[in-house]
């Protein structure tokens, strides 16, 4: 029971952060959300301790508000921008099987032009 409660405490900020990161792959997104949940809870607790305003309920409320804010900003962003139709497939789909012979190595001058435009 207590374990479930603790998990719930971690899941709430984790899920909020999860909703922010739509472009990431599932595994990366999950790991990052776990990290974010830990950071949010620990950060809240530390801030309360340093400011001398330690209170359990205050902390829980702050955490909930923070999570709601994150989830809201993710939602607002999603509504403003329809989801991109998945990122363009990577030029090298074979993943691990790439060596420098297989990679197209653009010259520095080539890479300069407008590669970056497509980043977002």
């Amino acid at each position: 029971m207590k374990l479930l409660l603790a998990l719930l405490l971690l899941v709430v900020p984790g899920t909020a952060f999860w909703s922010l990161l739509r472009g990431l792959d599932p595994v990366g997104r999950l790991v990052v959300s776990i990290a974010a949940a830990i950071v949010l809870i620990a950060g809240t607790a530390q801030t309360m301790l340093i400011l001398g305003t330690w209170s359990l309920h205050g902390g829980l409320i702050a955490l909930g508000a923070l999570s709601a804010l994150l989830a809201l900003s993710g939602r607002v962003h999603r509504r403003r921008q329809p989801p991109p139709a998945a990122l363009p497939p990577r030029p090298v789909p074979a993943g691990a099987n790439v060596t420098r012979q297989d990679l197209r190595l653009p010259h520095k001058e080539e890479a300069e032009d407008d590669d970056w435009l497509f980043k977002e």
């Binding site: 405490l9 809870i41 620990a42 607790a45 530390q46 902390g59 829980l60």
Partner: peptide
């Protein structure tokens, strides 16, 4: 602080 908060919350 982190652990105390977690332990207290549950």
């Amino acid at each position: 602080a982190f652990m105390a908060f977690l332990a207290k919350a549950v």
